[in-house]
Amino acid sequence: MKEKAKGKVKIEGKLVLKLYVSGMSSKSMAAIENIKLLCDEHLKGSVELEIIDIFKNPKLASEQHIVFSPSLLKKLPLPQKTLVGTLSDTKKVLKALGITIE
């Protein structure tokens, strides 16, 4: 995370996230690092995160309509969102996940 978000975190319901990465590529590693940092800092206990390597599960990529990698799928709460890229744009990530920090 390039900039640290401060304040009280507001989330509606539990977050269910799935991060699809392609092996150990630098972009994959960056995305993993970024999402872990975000979870540790703000979302302790209120997030369920699964990291999936599509190299090992190629079938899942097509079932889950993954085109870009890395891709973070927000399954819950609805609406579903797909966050593509290394998740380095924190503001965008928080907004897309429906997280507001007061």
Binding site: K27, V67, F68, P70, S88
Partner: peptide, 15 residues
């Protein structure tokens, strides 16, 4: 879809 950083089409390649 929200673009949050650098990405590639590796997933498409894998598929």
């Amino acid at each position: 879809i929200e673009e949050t950083g650098e990405y590639d089409l590796e997933a498409l390649f894998i598929r």
